[in-house]
Every structure is written in structure tokens, then in C-alpha cells.
């Protein structure tokens, strides 16, 4: 009995329940929703936003917020593709390592400002996002690298699929699942991961207990940048082009998905499984408007309402007396 009620009180269970209800409703409105093609497409749409959400999850557990990851993702993606074209290099592993490193460096810069000067993460990441985007568009270029100039190796990698019952499931899903598993292991099974939770709950106590807060901050923002860089290049190899103005507004969607998954913006709370559910919920709603025969211009309104309702529910969950 207590085990069941404990399970129900966990936000993952609530999100999962809502998710199932939403899927049934969409399925009733349009049975085409349950076709394997549609479901596989839906899963495919989870990959990039999901990896970004995992990066934001770690930042949020540490009590911070990151709005710079779309800028880092786009910088890593565009620079890597340009470098590949310039060198005429055809490969997959090295470019992804490169993109991840570019993201890592940007993330570490965030950590430097946040830790050394005790600056508010929102302000720092707003500033660094503007700096990175400005430099990329101002110095590197503004032109889209279309499919005809995209490295074929990346396209081949991004479009690799596995055949299940006549429908094609993108292999990228397994990359997403792999990263999610690693993140889960990191956050729940390593001392460094526990340090992130401790730091987010109360930085001062974490320090007094003996956690190295400096290392934690660098780890959190470095990891966030690295994941963003990786996700950026993955995105471009999945859509077969590299657009230096891509990912505008992604920060809203990703933060919404993470909050939807039960993470607390005050830190110390959040789970990988919840985040995956939150991401799935968001992509489900965004991608299913058409299938529900609702005009696509309503997307912003619907997503905004979902954010407000989800945050209202978590605020109600976390409510305290007086203050």
C-alpha cells in the first residue's frame, strides 16, 4: 500500500499517466496515430531535443539554468561541418568528437564565469549565447550548407535505420538511449553525480560536507556544453543540412520538457527517466497537432499552456507554508 502510494506520488508516475491518456485521446481522434511509421517518426523527433534535455537536466539539478546550449550546439555543428568540407574529410567518429569538444570548451567558459565570479547562471548563459551566436554569424558565415555540400558520411550516418515490420526506425534512437543510460549511471551511481544533487540542494552544505564545488560546477556546465555540441552535429546529420541560424527558441522547448519531467528549477531534484518522459510528452504534443487536425499556428499557444500547467502542478507539489 505505502509502496503504491509512494510510486503514485512520484512525478514520473503522474507524467506517465498523463502521457498515456494523451496518447489514447490522440489515437481516438485519429487512429492513424498508432501506425508504426508515425510512432517511429515521433521517436526520431525525440533524439536531438532529448540529448539537449539531458544536458539541461544536469544543470537544473545543480540549481542553475542554461539558455546557451542552442548557441553552443549550432556553433559546434557549423564549425565541424565547415572544417570537414575544408579538409575534405569523410568520417563520423572524429567530427563528433570535435563537435563535442567545441561544446565542452564553451560550457567550461560558462562554468568559469559562474564559479569564479559567482554570477547568476541565467545572466551568464544569456551573455555567452549572444557572444557565440554573434561570433559565428558575424565571423564564420551566415549561409546554409545544403545537402549538396553536406559531407556524405554524415548524411549516411544520420539516415541509418533498422527495419522493423516494414517500417524504418532511425538508429539514432539507440544513441539517445545510450546517452540516457550513461547519464542515469552518472547521476545516480557515481560520487560526482551525487555531488551535483548535493550542490543543487544546498551549495553551502555540500561544500561543508566535503564535496568539491568547483569541480562540480565545471563538470555540470562542461558536460552540458559537450552534450549540446554532440546533439548539434547529430541534428545536422539527421536533417542533411547545417544552418547557422538553427536552434532558435530551442531553449524554451527543452527547459519546458525538463520541467515537465519533474525536475525542480531550484535544484536538487530531477531524474533521467522523468526527463525522457517530459521530452516525449512535448514532442508528442507538438507533432500531433496536425494529426489532431489542429492548425499548426496554434503550436506556440499549446506548448505555452503545457508549460504553464506543468509548472503550476510542480509549484503545487513543492508548495511550502508562508514563503
Amino acid at each position: 500500500m505505502t509502496a503504491v502510494s509512494k510510486l503514485l506520488r512520484r512525478s514520473e508516475a503522474a507524467v506517465l499517466a498523463i502521457l498515456i491518456v494523451v496518447m489514447i485521446v490522440i489515437g481516438v481522434i485519429n487512429p492513424a496515430f498508432w501506425q508504426a511509421d508515425n510512432l517511429f517518426n515521433l521517436l526520431r523527433a525525440n533524439v536531438v531535443i532529448g540529448i539537449m534535455a539531458l544536458s539541461v537536466l544536469t544543470v537544473m539539478i545543480s540549481g542553475g539554468i542554461d539558455v546557451s546550449f542552442p548557441a553552443f550546439a549550432v556553433a559546434a555543428m557549423y564549425l565541424t561541418v565547415i572544417a570537414m568540407n575544408a579538409a575534405g574529410y569523410q568520417g563520423v567518429v572524429l567530427p563528433f568528437i570535435g563537435a563535442t569538444l567545441i561544446g565542452l570548451v564553451c560550457g567550461l567558459a560558462n562554468a568559469f564565469f559562474i564559479h569564479t565570479f559567482r554570477m547568476i547562471p541565467l545572466i551568464v548563459t544569456l551573455g555567452s549565447a549572444s557572444v557565440v551566436r554573434g561570433l559565428l554569424l558575424g565571423l564564420v558565415g551566415t549561409s546554409i550548407i545544403n545537402i549538396d555540400r553536406m559531407p556524405p558520411s554524415l548524411i549516411a550516418f544520420g539516415s541509418s535505420t533498422v527495419d522493423i515490420g516494414g517500417s524504418k526506425l532511425s538508429l539514432m534512437i539507440f544513441i539517445y538511449i545510450g546517452i540516457a543510460l550513461l547519464m542515469w549511471l552518472f547521476l545516480t551511481r557515481t560520487m560526482a553525480g551525487r555531488a551535483v544533487f548535493a550542490y543543487g540542494d544546498d551549495a553551502e552544505s555540500a561544500k561543508r560536507v566535503g564535496f568539491n564545488t568547483r569541480r562540480t560546477v565545471y563538470l555540470v556546465y562542461g558536460l552540458a556544453g559537450a552534450l549540446a555540441g554532440f546533439a548539434g552535429l547529430l541534428h545536422s546529420s539527421m536533417i542533411w543540412l547545417a544552418n547557422p541560424r538553427d536552434f532558435v527558441g530551442y531553449e524554451l522547448d527543452v527547459i519546458a520538457a525538463v520541467v515537465l519531467g519533474g525536475a525542480s528549477i531550484f535544484g536538487g531534484r530531477g531524474s533521467v527517466f522523468g526527463t525522457i518522459l517530459g521530452v516525449f510528452m512535448l514532442t508528442l504534443i507538438k507533432n500531433s497537432l496536425i494529426i489532431m487536425r489542429i492548425d499548426n499556428t496554434w503550436q506556440g499557444v499549446v506548448v505555452g499552456c503545457v508549460i504553464v500547467i506543468a509548472t503550476a502542478l510542480t509549484a503545487w507539489r513543492d508548495r511550502k507554508a508562508l514563503v
Partner: peptide, 13 residues
Amino acid sequence: LGTGQIFTGFCMV
């Protein structure tokens, strides 16, 4: 963040 999305969404509509 949420209401901003809603307002911009209404602009689109």
C-alpha cells in the same frame, strides 16, 4: 517563459 510562448503563439495564430 510559458506565458511568453502563449503570447507569441497567439501572435502567430
